[in-house]
């Protein structure tokens, strides 16, 4: 059961798109949160429980790699799906090593999101 989702992206249009897609798949029974950067994301993650994070990598200031490292350091165990245009093989390996449970390439497609959410057990069927 996924009760809260945090969408982290410095792009307003991407946040809007990602929120619309997860809402389409998971409906109204979920609390949706969003953050425009890594620092804002950590402020939310350290103040309330979040079940799932959709995390961008390339952001000004604290980037997605930094957020994953900080989450690990602070023992925050929310599941993280990286949604990024940084499609280097090594980027995918690094985020997996930092604890991310999924990777979706930008531009995000609803089928890719559905597949990852199903794999994580957040979506059935």
């Amino acid at each position: 059961m996924t009760a809260s989702i945090l969408v982290v992206d410095d792009s307003k249009s991407s946040r809007k798109l990602n929120l619309a897609m997860v809402h389409e798949l998971l409906g109204d029974q979920v609390t949706y949160l969003d953050a425009a950067g890594g620092e804002a994301a950590m402020a939310i993650l350290t103040s309330q429980p979040v079940d799932l994070v959709l995390l961008d990598l390339t952001m000004p200031g604290m980037n997605g790699f930094d957020v994953l490292a900080a989450m690990r350091e602070q023992h925050i165990h929310s599941r993280v799906i990286v949604v990024s245009a940084d499609i280097q093989t090594k980027a995918k390996e690094r985020v997996a090593a930092l604890g991310a449970t999924g990777f979706i390439e930008k531009p995000i497609k609803i089928d890719a999101l559905r597949a990852v959410l199903t794999q994580l057990g957040a979506l059935h069927g």
Binding site: T58, P60, A85, D86, Q88, T89, K90, R94, K106, P107
Partner: peptide, 23 residues
């Protein structure tokens, strides 16, 4: 950003390394 990601991946492959991408 998406286009840069594609070009960065091509550069990383050419150098067999990792490319830090900035906004």
């Amino acid at each position: 950003n998406i286009a840069m990601g594609k070009a960065g991946a091509a550069l990383a492959q050419a150098f067999e390394g990792f490319v830090n991408l900035q906004v």
